[in-house]
Amino acid sequence: MSTDSYPEISFETRMSSVEFRVHERAHITVDSKICADCSTRGCITACPANLFVSTADGGILFNYELCFECGTCYMVCNEEGAISWSYPEGGHGVVFHSS
């Protein structure tokens, strides 16, 4: 079957369906210098919110704001200390309604 008759939504549209109450403190930080030595980069493929992006200088650019707080990134990470992970402040972060 052709997929043309069921057009897939863009990633931006997909993520705009989710409510995030963003706190000013980043609950996850990524040490791009450590990432520069990583050849696997599972986070880029696996993060369901697509928050990890390769940079031109070989590092990783990360934005915490649209994060599902699922834990995938630190679990698939091969590099000790690259990802510092905590939950957002109470009342902040992702808020599901129809899940």
Binding site: V18, F68, C70, T72, M75, S99
Partner: peptide, 12 residues
Amino acid sequence: EGGQVKEYSAHV
């Protein structure tokens, strides 16, 4: 078919 995505979600 024809449905509209209301919410995307993810969890481990």
